[in-house]
Design a protein around this nucleic acid. Structure first.
Length: 829
RNA sequence: GCCUGGGUGGCGGAAUAGGUAGACGCAAGGGACUUAAAAUCCCUCGGGGCUCUGCUCUGUACGGGUUCGAUUCCCGUCCCAGGCACCA
């Protein structure tokens, strides 16, 4: 049978392959005890309308790993779904008068098509959309369970509020005082809100950062930073009425230098202490003024320290001296006890405050090289040194003295060891429509009543007229909120807030294991088969949002007995952004490249290849249209390499070792086996760009080899072996063209995804090696010698080289350093 | 200010363990094929110098150090990106 050579037509072959994959359901995963499982997960997208280049990159990286692991014999779970609740759906509804549900599901349909057109190997039968009732009903179940266990509570407190989005934001969702989504300045608002008690897990979440070796250090650092664990002590300063004023400090070594105390304006004592003193009015006015300022404004104001004296004093428990109590704008009620001891000599903030209000300064830590004098100091000394003015602790190194100071405080019941965290509980109430309804009912007589488990789900009405003004849409929908109390049957009102959409993404990775299970939230047997996620891939922007919440949620569900592992994600890869012309691709910058256009022009394989080749996964990817063309050229070159010769090769048997001693054939064999080794190692450490570079070298080598007209069956067989190897190596990166070429070679297309080529160790190290010769560390010559040659012999050979002789002439050889099979350095004087 | 990363050709990026700096690709220049163009193929390609198939000096942000040898390790400085920022 003779074939006419066809040119590379990506659209045709890609659609053909995709159809076969779909029909044969080749990416379906099921539990299989006979093989090692591998759960590969990429962060699921928000169905905003269209796939963007960031998605293409993220999912291309994931697909290489998924396909590669399958070829290595793993039972791979590679699912995809939709983070489908969220604000843009509501905005679209307002702008275009479409229901959020309609808009969302239409987007999902469109984007699913796009992902399929890119040829990613997902098990689409496990697809989930978080806005499906069958998904969020179990989220409501989890909420109720958490409520039972005391992990959910409701409280009135100042919260972050975005006026543009008209909703509350969690601390993690405020970036530099602005809304993470729209950039609007966040204000403080007093509201009653539901909270998840993530702080109960603060210590564990912090400590386990050391037990996640598969995570990038910078992500762990961001999490540690965010949780903010600090060791210190709570100290009681008795006041004149005998009651204690409790403060938290990490620097008990400066206790002897306390000259005043400061309370947060929100501190309960702030308004009661000054009663009856001449300072009362002034304090009340100050507290009022400061409290009404919102957080970011106050932070800005407090650059200059402001405060008022309460007229009252506290007693330093160590020195028994009387120190004045102030109210200050720079003290935060949310951290520690909302009150601090102030040591102006050794804390810059306290120093500034003391200077402002003429409060004395006492030095208690003396640096080694200088002498501190309170009268002349211009800033606080925050470093270490010898303790002075510190009674029994005088002369000791301050850091070393801390434990004994704390011991002393504890023994005398003056204070207590204490660890404080910066992390706050996660506020999850959102005054929005398109989210999971919080399953709670408010009854005049029974109070806050959880929706009974049997009454779940609380279904989000989808036929609602959405308006932007006023309260949350659900709060205006009587059909939704009017309900009878499950306990007393009296008319009652549903909670009309919905949950933060980060709740959905905190457990979706578990649901993929059992998407159709509906007897409970999760089928533990299946979940435990697949969990933990072996490799998670996504953007670094979720370092302290989604990734922290998920770790928290997984622990909670672990305690409910639904999953057996404590940490959900074993290994994490954070890929960089896609950049063009020096800026992140975005509509507002006008530098967007549409994946759809790329597919039309070059095909999915080229689009994928460029995303993988242009830079290593963790780095930002600089988009370059010319680079894309280069990738397209490469695929055409591969296509021609095989298609042009297929008539001669079709029925030839493949061999992977030369039967002749023809040096070119031997060289090709070495190249082939070395390439397998390099590509394997590179994929294993996610150096996908260099893996592709190696494959390009193999292609270049093959062209060079075939340049000469070669006769003989052996040559053909070896060439065929190299072709098969090449196509297999290409498969995880560019599956369509690889599978098509595989079939062109007359092989079963189902098999390419199951076999990863092996290399013969004998052919990765040549018998001779190139040894570099240096004289005094400078490269002077090189020579080809037998591998593992005797060192003495090598020394002799080296000294006969012309250029070496020239450089050592008239000098004495002091020593010769030999790095076997690599380098000789002759040291002369 | 603090904590992380990171600074390598015209560009994207290579260089597992301290051992040939610049793999692979893009761009650029030159050539072959062609009536021509596209496509394809070949050659050159960090900078300087020379007696130019070769040799030599220099070069991985900057300044020192360790070493036979440093892009790689150590100390100091500068710059860029990300995170945190009155957290007591």
């Amino acid at each position: 049978m003779r074939f006419r050579m066809q040119s590379y037509n990506p659209q045709a072959i890609e659609e053909k392959r995709q159809e076969i994959w779909e029909q044969e359901r080749v990416f379906r995963a099921s539990e299989d005890g006979s093989r090692e499982k591998y759960y590969l997960l990429e962060m699921f997208p928000y169905p905003s309308g269209k796939i963007h280049m960031g998605h293409v990159r993220n999912y291309s990286i994931g697909d290489v790993i998924a396909r590669y692991k399958r070829m290595r014999g793993y039972n791979v779970l590679h699912p995809m779904g939709w983070d489908a609740f969220g604000m843009p759906a509501e905005n679209a509804a307002i702008d275009r008068g479409i229901q959020p549900a309609t808009w969302t599901y239409e987007n999902i349909d469109y984007m699913r098509k796009q992902l399929k057109r890119l040829g990613f190997s997902y098990d689409w039968e496990r697809e989930i959309a978080t806005c499906d009732v069958d998904y969020y009903r179990w989220e409501q179940w989890i909420f109720l369970k958490m409520l039972e266990k005391g992990l959910v509570y409701r409280k009135n407190s100042p919260v972050n509020y975005c006026q543009k989005c008209q909703t509350v934001l969690a601390n993690e969702q405020v970036e530099g005082g602005a809304c993470w989504r729209c950039g609007e300045t966040v204000i403080q608002k007093e509201l009653t809100q539901w909270f998840f008690a993530i702080t109960q897990y603060a210590d564990e979440l912090f400590e386990y950062c050391d037990k996640l070796p598969g995570w990038p250090e910078r992500v762990l650092n961001m999490q540690r930073n965010w949780i903010g664990k600090s060791y210190g002590v709570e100290v009681n300063f008795p006041m004149e009425d005998g009651k204690p004023l409790t403060i938290f400090t990490t620097r008990p070594d400066t206790l002897f230098g306390v000259t005043f105390m400061v309370l947060a304006p929100e501190h309960p004592l702030a308004t009661t202490l000054p009663k009856g003193t001449p300072h009362e009015q002034e304090v009340l006015a100050f507290v009022e003024k400061t409290k009404t300022q919102d957080k970011s404004f106050r932070a800005e104001m407090a650059v200059s320290k402001e405060g008022v004296f309460t007229g009252k004093y506290a007693i330093n428990p160590l020195t028994h001296t009387k120190v004045p109590i102030y109210i200050g704008n720079f003290v935060l009620m949310e951290y520690g006890t909302g009150a601090i001891m102030s040591v102006p000599a050794h804390d810059q903030r306290d120093f500034e405050f003391a200077k402002e209000y003429n409060i004395p300064i006492i030095v208690t830590i003396m640096p080694e090289k200088t002498v501190l004098d309170p009268a002349t100091m211009t800033e606080a000394y925050e470093g270490d040194g010898k303790m002075v003015n510190s009674g029994p602790f005088n002369g000791r190194q301050n850091r070393e003295a801390i434990p004994s100071i704390i011991d002393y405080l504890e023994e005398n019941k003056l204070g207590k060891r204490r660890i404080n965290f910066r992390l706050r509980d996660w506020g999850i109430s959102r005054q929005r429509y398109w989210g999971t309804p919080i399953p709670i009912i408010y009854c005049e007589s029974c109070g806050t009543v959880p929706v009974p488990y049997d009454d779940l789900p609380v279904v989000l009405p989808v036929d609602l007229a959405v308006t932007m003004v006023g309260k949350s849409p659900l709060a205006e929908c009587a059909d939704f909120y009017q309900i009878e109390c499950p306990l007393c049957k009296a008319p009652a009102k549903r909670e009309t807030d919905t949950m933060d959409t980060f709740v959905e993404s905190s457990w979706y990775f578990l649901k993929y294991a059992c998407p159709d299970y509906n007897e409970g939230p999760l089928d533990s047997a299946k979940v435990n088969y697949w969990m933990p996620v072996d490799q998670y891939i996504g953007g670094v922007e979720h370092a302290v949002l989604h990734l922290l919440y998920s770790r928290f949620f997984n622990r909670v569900l672990n305690e409910f007995g639904l999953v057996s592992v404590r940490e959900p994600f074993e290994n994490l890869l954070t890929q960089g952004m896609v950049i063009k012309n020096g800026a992140k691709m975005s509509k507002s910058k006008g530098n967007v490249v549409d994946p759809e256009y790329m597919i039309k022009k070059y095909g999915a394989d080229t689009a994928r290849l460029f995303c993988l080749f242009a830079s290593p996964p963790e780095k930002d990817l600089d988009w370059n249209d010319k680079g894309v063309e280069g990738c397209s050229r490469f695929l055409q070159r591969v296509w021609r390499l095989i298609a042009e010769r297929i008539n001669d090769m079709r029925d030839v048997e493949a061999i992977f070792e030369p039967l002749t001693s023809d040096s070119d054939a031997v060289q090709l064999t070495y190249l082939m086996h070395k390439t397998i080794k390099k590509v394997t190692e590179d994929i294993d450490r996610f150096h996908l760009n260099t893996a592709i570079a190696r494959i390009m070298e193999l292609v270049n080598g093959l062209y060079k080899f075939l340049e000469k007209d070669r006769e003989g069956e052996d040559t053909k067989k070896l060439t065929r072996g190299a072709f098969e190897t090449l196509v297999s190596l290409l498969f995880p990166f560019v599956p369509h063209i690889a599978e098509e070429l595989w079939e062109m070679l007359g092989k079963d297309s189902r098999m390419i995804g199951k076999e990863w080529p092996r290399y013969n160790p004998q052919y990765v190290e040549e018998d001779t090696v190139l040894v570099v010769v240096q004289v005094n560390g400078k490269l002077r010559d090189r020579c080809e010698v037998d591998r593992d040659i005797d060192q003495e012999q090598l020394r002799e050979i080296v000294l006969t080289l012309d250029n070496v002789k020239r450089h050592i002439e008239g000098k004495t050889v002091m020593k010769t350093i030999v790095v076997p099979n690599k380098l000789v350095n002759v040291v002369v004087k």
